[in-house]
């Protein structure tokens, strides 16, 4: 009998020493929203927000770790305390502000874009009878439901990659998503996808989501964000992951270089035509 009791007792002792106080700042991210956050080939979280989060924690002298959490439960799980902050390409909205607090933004407001299969034309001003895809619980989803739900079918997806897969398969006509997410997907689709229309101004900038009670933590992160914005770290990370900006410091060397690169590429393209 002793032989049986011992392993059980050992197993129970695992439970007897639970971690209650947060010694580490746990950062939740989606891990499926490239280039903001994704799983790299090694199976580890990578992307703009992972690099930025680590830089912010180094600046604020905090010990941080990232963990992946599904998008649709990312706010409830923050409130429940499964982790301490959210960095997941989350735009600041008035609705979200009722439940959680936001830090200062670390990514400027960008446009949301409609993507479709190349060659299809849409009358975006009087859109009727179109199937429009969007990721659920996003600012884009709210906007679609408020503005284009009448006469069109809105299909909401749990994960962003599913929405792109359905667009590629022709199950939906249009996909509305953030510029930063769609840019590289459209660029690397080998001409299969293209942007339709000029885009929409939806939602605010992107910021860290926090529990409303964590005022001290918010202060630390806001200070770190201000420092990294001023010294160009945020801009250089935006450059690394989004290539074309937008940037915080109006003129940066990296930003100029990127502009020149883009312009030279465009000139070459026009010349070859």
């Amino acid at each position: 009998m002793k032989k049986f009791i011992l392993p059980v007792a050992l197993a129970l002792s695992v439970l007897a020493t639970p971690a209650f106080a947060a010694d580490k700042v746990r950062i939740a991210t989606e891990g499926a929203y490239a280039p903001w956050n994704f799983l790299d080939d090694d199976g580890k979280l990578a992307g703009f927000e992972i690099d930025l989060g680590n830089a912010l924690c180094a600046e604020a002298k905090l010990d941080c770790e990232f963990k992946a959490n599904e998008w649709d439960s990312i706010i409830p799980n923050l409130i429940a305390g499964n982790y301490d902050i959210i960095m997941a390409g989350m735009s600041v909205t008035a609705e979200r502000k009722q439940k959680i607090a936001f830090s200062d933004e670390y990514f400027p407001v960008t446009k949301s874009m409609m993507a479709a299969e190349s060659g299809k034309t849409f009358d975006l001003d009087n859109l009727k009878g179109a199937k429009i895809g969007v990721q659920g619980a996003t600012v884009q989803a709210d906007w679609l439901n408020a503005n284009l739900a009448d006469g069109n079918t809105i299909k909401s997806f749990e994960k962003p990659d599913q929405s792109v897969a359905d667009l590629m398969a022709g199950n939906i006509d249009l996909l509305l998503a953030g510029d930063g997410y769609l840019d590289e997907i459209v660029a690397s689709s080998k001409g299969k996808l293209e942007f339709v229309g000029p885009g929409y101004d939806i939602g605010g900038g992107v910021a860290i989501g926090m529990r409303q009670a964590d005022k001290e933590l918010a202060g630390k992160f806001n200070a770190a964000i201000a420092t990294l914005k001023a010294n160009g770290t945020v801009d250089s990370l935006i450059k690394k992951y989004f290539k074309k900006g937008p940037y915080y410091t109006s003129i940066t060397l990296d930003g100029l270089k990127a502009e020149i690169e883009a312009l030279t590429a465009r000139v070459k393209k026009l010349e070859s035509k």
């Binding site: 799983l39 990659d161 792109v164 897969a165 997907i185």
Partner: peptide, 18 residues
């Protein structure tokens, strides 16, 4: 589930459908 999910972003590994 994670590996089978489609990937359209070259820097996150091989680009493949669902």
């Amino acid at each position: 589930g994670l590996l089978g999910a489609a990937n359209y972003f070259p820097r996150a590994g091989m680009v493949h459908p669902n």
